[in-house]
Design a protein around this nucleic acid. Structure first.
Lengths: 215, 215
DNA sequence: ACCTGAACACCGTTCAAGT
DNA sequence: ACCTGAACACCGTTCAAGT
């Protein structure tokens, strides 16, 4: 396995490349993923990578779509399900897929995810909304809201979380930012709980809109 | 004004540096902002920039906080306002500040925004929520949901928007992704409208939760 | 005291040259 | 046919040297 590759058909399948890329990103963070380090880690050369991918952006897009593959396989069969359950399941599957690859999250920003698995996740979610009687334009907005909410949430999962409030800092804060200080006593809130909170708001809001429509 | 700078106290105020940085980002995009180009544009040198900022990250953080300054000045006096109006005003002010500097949005991902203006915006919003009787832990989650929603939305504002669906592509889509195709007929949706839609959901969800609490 | 060119150690990408 | 070292044009960051 450690042997030098020989001329001939490429013994470097795309899948191996992106698996290694994800491995690097998970282990060392998004910044560590350069074409050079990836090539070295594979025992190959950068020029070889460019025989498989048009450019770094294309490679990154495929790594990102790997996250969505995890999300897709995290949602079960949605068909026939109540929209509330289905919506929640799609959201939490996407959220957890991203949580499990925090290091890869900065990659989400380089391009709008539009790989096959991202599209499949959307398709599954839209299908169940339509099944539940959502009018198409309403379903489209409903999915967009969810996608943006999950993304906004996931994005800052990777960050350091703004750090420790020492007692001294808190004292200063209560002078300049009293409301923040008052609320800060209730912190820290677990990320999972914050996520669930907003998701419940979206669902409650949707239910309310649907009730209005039926009345 | 175009004259070479001379030795002596720094004729390069921080404010000028970040104003020029924002100008570059607005005009040429986030990728165009390198320490070299910024220094050249200012008629200075990279080493001089490092006398004002610890590193590029710190400079970027200050550019980002400039966006939040716009957002803060976009919200009027919130005190004494109904929470629904206040919440909506904070959200739309932040959204518009980001829309007006699309090129700068990728910078938002480099660090969790925690500059003085970002903190001020949060303080103002939390204050009005507390005023309206939100319990602290509830107010904290309410603000977090909004911040994440706006961020997730703003982030993808800069992107190309996934591009034009030609007739041929749509035909293929209706085979493989029927729900997406069905919904796609209702597209494109204006970004502003998508944003308002989800915001209304969050507000309706909050109202519902408060009603439950009072009952 | 403040500024600067030049250097260091990296990037993404390409291409002539190897086998 | 497929792979590769070396090059090109960039980065962020630092430092000895200028005035």
């Amino acid at each position: 396995m450690g042997s030098r590759r020989t001329p001939g058909r490429p013994p470097l399948p795309r899948a191996d490349i992106i698996a290694k890329a994800l491995e690097i990103v998970d282990g060392q963070g998004a910044d560590a993923l350069s074409m050079r380090t990836l090539a070295r880690e594979l025992g190959s050369s950068t020029a070889t990578l460019y025989r498989h991918f048009e450019n770094r952006t294309e490679l990154v897009a495929e790594v990102v779509d790997h996250l969505f593959r995890h999300a897709v396989s995290g949602v079960g069969e949605l068909s026939g399900m109540d929209w509330r359950q289905a919506y929640r399941q799609v959201a939490t599957a996407a959220y957890h897929a991203m949580k499990n690859h925090r290091g890869a999250l900065p990659l989400l920003l380089e391009r709008v995810p539009s790989g096959p698995n991202a599209m499949l996740l959307r398709e599954r979610c839209l299908a169940v909304l339509l099944e539940n009687g959502f009018p198409p334009h309403f379903a489209a907005r409903t999915y967009a809201s969810l996608a943006r909410y999950v993304l906004g949430f996931a994005i800052q999962t990777g960050g350091t979380g703004a750090g420790a409030d020492t007692g001294a800092l808190k004292a200063a804060l209560s002078q300049t930012h009293p409301a923040t200080a008052a609320v800060g006593d209730a912190l820290p809130i677990s990320l999972d709980e914050e996520f669930a909170f907003g998701l419940d708001l979206l669902i409650a809001g949707l239910a309310h809109r649907l009730d209005e429509r039926d009345a």
